[in-house]
C-alpha cells in the first residue's frame, strides 16, 4: 500500500472523487463520475509525479443496479496498481467518453465492453461488436442474460453458427444477482 500516492490523489482530485480512496493489498482504488473521466485520465497519464503510462486493463461491470467501467493503470512511480472506477452508468443507457485519444490501444477493449455490456464509448471510431455476430441483439455479460439450464435443448445450443433473432425477454428487477457495494 502506497500511502503517499493516496494523499497525492486525494489532493489532486479533491473535486472529482465521488468516494474515498481505498487501498487493499497492492491496489489503490479511486471512484469518479463518467463525466470527469477524460480529464482525470489525462492528468494521471501526463503529470510527471503520477505518470501512469500503461493501461493494463479495461473491464465493464454490471452490478445489477448500474454499470461501471473499471480501468487498471500502471506507473513506474508507485508500487501499487491504480484502479479507476467510473460509475454510475444507468443500465438502460450506459454512456461514457472514450479513452482512445490517450491510449489508442483501448479501442478493442472498449469494443469488447460494448459487445458484452452494451456500454457506449462516445468518440470511439470503431464501436462494433467484436466477438458476437453483427446481427446479435443481446449483451451476454449483463446480469439479466441467464445461461440456459440445458445447452442441448436451448435455442442457443449446439456447435453450429446460431443466433437468436429476437431480443431476450425482459427480466423482473428483483430476480437479478447484484452487489450494490461493488
Amino acid at each position: 500500500m502506497d500511502r503517499p500516492l493516496r494523499r497525492r490523489l486525494e489532493t489532486r482530485f479533491a473535486n472529482e472523487l465521488t468516494g474515498p480512496v481505498r487501498q487493499r493489498h497492492d491496489a489503490t482504488e479511486i471512484r469518479i463520475g463518467p463525466a470527469a473521466l477524460t480529464s482525470v485520465m489525462a492528468t494521471l497519464h501526463d503529470e510527471p509525479d503520477l505518470d501512469f503510462a500503461l493501461l493494463a486493463d479495461l473491464a465493464g461491470v454490471d452490478t445489477g443496479d448500474h454499470m461501471q467501467v473499471v480501468y487498471h493503470l500502471w506507473s513506474a512511480k508507485t508500487p501499487d496498481w491504480l484502479r479507476v472506477i467510473a460509475e454510475p452508468l444507468p443500465r438502460d443507457d450506459p454512456r461514457i467518453p472514450t479513452l482512445t485519444g490517450l491510449w489508442p490501444g483501448a479501442e478493442w477493449m472498449e469494443r469488447e465492453a460494448y459487445d458484452m455490456f452494451g456500454i457506449v464509448f462516445e468518440g470511439n471510431r470503431d464501436l462494433r461488436r467484436i466477438y458476437m455476430p453483427p446481427d446479435y441483439t443481446s449483451f451476454p455479460l449483463r446480469k439479466d442474460f441467464f445461461l440456459p439450464d440445458d445447452a442441448a435443448r436451448s435455442p442457443g445450443g449446439g456447435v453450429r453458427h446460431v443466433e437468436r433473432p429476437e431480443a431476450p425477454p425482459a427480466v423482473a428487477a428483483g430476480s437479478l444477482r447484484r452487489t450494490p457495494g461493488a
Binding site: A27, E29, A59, V61, H72, R83, R177, T179, A182
Partner: peptide
C-alpha cells in the same frame, strides 16, 4: 465481498484478472 486485481508476466505479456466477490 470485495475486489481484487492480479497480474503476472507470461510469455506473451501481462495476464491479468479482475475478480469481484459478492
Amino acid at each position: 465481498p470485495g475486489r481484487a486485481w492480479a497480474a503476472i508476466e507470461g510469455p506473451r505479456g501481462l495476464y491479468g484478472t479482475y475478480a469481484i466477490s459478492d
